[in-house]
């Protein structure tokens, strides 16, 4: 209590009451945090528990099978083609989004005149980030699968996921570009650099960690997306991974969320465990991506 022993600074009922309110508020905030963390732990714990005994190294290196007994005792059935499919998808999506996202962000922040049109575009990019992924799936289906005539192939999948996360990447990249202090730009202009040199030598290197962090987090969202892949007609089960050749771009592909969905909809009870094992693999990839993003952010945080 606030008894200091000095006259006039003794304990005070109103002050005590305010402190009580403060403590109640902190308690409520703590409970909210607890709720979120507990729900997450329960979910992850449950998935790991379900997958126990079904997940081993052969699960990562073998194609799926229709017979649950093939998934045990290292007999050789698993998630391999979908895992590789997802990695291909994510690498392609990363390449597309980095070029398009960084390009758009640099243009909007460094070059675009500050007009009403520019502001309108910027506001709507932020809005696009909130559009449900199924809508992007529809767009991908109409645009890449049908209009461009690609069919349900890897390239169409990557382009669709690119559309999905591009707004997030642009906004993150814009923030990173905006965070580069003007004094840095002035320093380069001051020794006779052109605008392009200032952008290439000063703005991009400083903004890159932020851009990478934002991009990886967005990709982590994309890798778990199922709805857009269903819309464009990705394969639910593939027995061979995509080939390591440019031709693979124009061939059907699978991805982890599709495979997990397929397993979970099988009638045999064992497949629930197999789906859980697939989820653990997916979550691990997600976690690794997030860890990379955090690592990059800390590494370059000055």
């Amino acid at each position: 209590m606030a008894t200091t022993g000095i006259d006039g600074f003794g304990s005070d009922a109103t002050l005590d009451r305010k402190r009580l309110y403060g403590r109640v508020f902190v308690g409520l905030c703590f409970l909210s945090t607890l709720f979120g963390v507990a729900a997450l732990l329960l979910l992850v714990g449950d998935v790991i528990y379900e997958s126990w005994g079904w997940l081993d190294l052969t699960f990562l290196t073998h194609p799926p099978s229709w017979f649950p007994e093939n998934y045990v005792d290292g007999r050789g059935a698993g998630i391999y083609p979908a895992l590789i499919g997802s990695l291909f998808l994510i690498v392609l999506t990363a390449v597309f989004t980095i070029f398009l996202g960084v390009g758009a962000a640099i243009y909007l922040e460094e070059y675009a005149p500050d007009t009403r049109v520019t502001r309108f575009i910027e506001a709507n990019i932020a809005n696009l980030a909130g559009v449900p992924s199924i809508v992007y799936g529809l767009l991908g289906l109409a645009l890449f699968v049908r209009a461009a005539g690609l069919g349900s192939v890897l390239l169409a999948g990557a382009l669709t996921l690119t559309l999905l996360i591009l707004p997030i990447v642009i906004v993150a990249a814009q923030e990173a570009v905006r965070a580069v202090p003007d004094s840095q730009r002035r320093a380069a202009y001051g020794v006779g650099a052109t605008k392009w040199e200032v952008t290439r030598d000063v703005v991009l290197p400083s903004a890159m960690p932020g851009i990478m962090t934002g991009t990886i987090l967005a990709l982590a969202r994309a890798i778990g997306e199922t709805a857009p892949l269903i819309m464009i007609g990705a394969a639910t089960t593939m027995f061979a991974p995509p080939r390591l050749s440019p031709g693979a771009l124009f061939e059907p592909f699978g991805a982890m969320p599709m495979q997990i969905f397929e397993w979970a909809s099988q009638p045999q009870a064992e497949f629930q465990h197999i789906a859980a094992a697939g989820s653990v693999v997916l979550l691990t990839v997600l976690l690794l991506m997030n860890a990379t993003a955090i690592y990059i952010r800390n590494r370059y945080d000055r």
Partner: peptide, 11 residues
């Protein structure tokens, strides 16, 4: 050439 108020070396 120009030198500014805040020292602004590049990283």
């Amino acid at each position: 050439g120009m030198v500014f108020q805040e020292p602004n070396p590049f990283p």
